[in-house]
Design a protein around this nucleic acid. Structure first.
Lengths: 147, 147
DNA sequence: CGCAGCATATCAAAGCTTTGATATCCATCA
DNA sequence: TGATGGATATCAAAGCTTTGATATGCTGCG
């Protein structure tokens, strides 16, 4: 292979994301949620009535993936979907009170992880990490054969 | 919610990992591989004859997940599995020549992404990013209720 | 020796994600 | 008006991942 494995920064990013998702899974599980479900509820609490496609964009997944997540959430009564009054092709999605309760229970523990990360760094380090990650995203986008 | 979404560093990490995996998917697809398959073949080329469980650890997934990946790779003739001579409970896995060819075809394009990331940074920045990500992992591990 | 402990492999169920395809609705423009 | 393009929603197939459970084989200690 052309490049030694320990020079590939991708592994470091993956390791961090892996640790993060594992910890969040453990945090969110007692509330009866998965990480994607938590992410969807979180975005919904910020933008009530958002469309499924927009919710997918906010959560960085495809609309199809979000459809599955919403189906599961709706079956469990954590969200409600109703047709948009004018755009009849759009389904507005909102948290139910059970959904808000689940989100709050989950976030109470998930936020501990975010706080732990934030507390690990000084303000300058935090900014530096964000800037470096943003440049990663740019470099990757530039290297991705236009799609 | 207790913490504003734009203060959560987890989102930045997720965004970077998301960009990375999307780009790698596109890179590896023409070789007929998925990213997990590519990761498994890559690890196998470094450690021929490794056990499925060890391979899972190397790829940061569970042994069950690796079982599925290996099953698909074996069905397509990209890896071979044979019982370990002494540990009869262990299956040694090795690349076939078709597997090596697929890996090389995939890596040729995947490495472009890693090079693009590496080229974006100076040596100091690269080291800084790795160090910051490693501290993230530590902070997360510390915040994870012992497992 | 015999057994407890640990690692390996795998099945099964549930959920997530992707690609590909389809149907519907709205908005804009000729 | 009518057609084209863009956005939304969803079905289906294939693959990955997790948790939980089970079977098997080695290993070291009493």
């Amino acid at each position: 292979m052309g490049m030694p494995a320990d020079e590939r920064l991708g592994l470091d990013i993956k390791r961090a994301e892996q640790a993060l998702i594992t910890a969040k899974q453990a945090a969110v599980r007692p509330a009866g949620l998965t990480v994607p479900q938590y992410a969807a509820l979180f975005a919904l609490s910020d933008s009530p009535g958002i469309s499924g496609a927009a919710l997918a964009r906010a959560c960085l997944v495809t609309p199809q993936a979000m459809t599955v997540v919403l189906k599961n959430l709706e079956e469990r009564g954590l969200v409600e979907r109703s047709p948009h009054p004018w755009h009849r092709n759009v389904l507005e999605t909102r948290l139910t009170s059970a959904g808000r309760a689940a989100l709050e229970a989950a976030d109470e523990r998930a936020v501990l992880i975010e706080r732990a990360i934030a507390a690990e760094f000084s303000a300058e380090e935090r900014a530096a990490l964000r800037a470096l990650l943003a440049r990663c995203v740019e470099a990757i986008a530039r290297a991705t054969p236009e799609s």
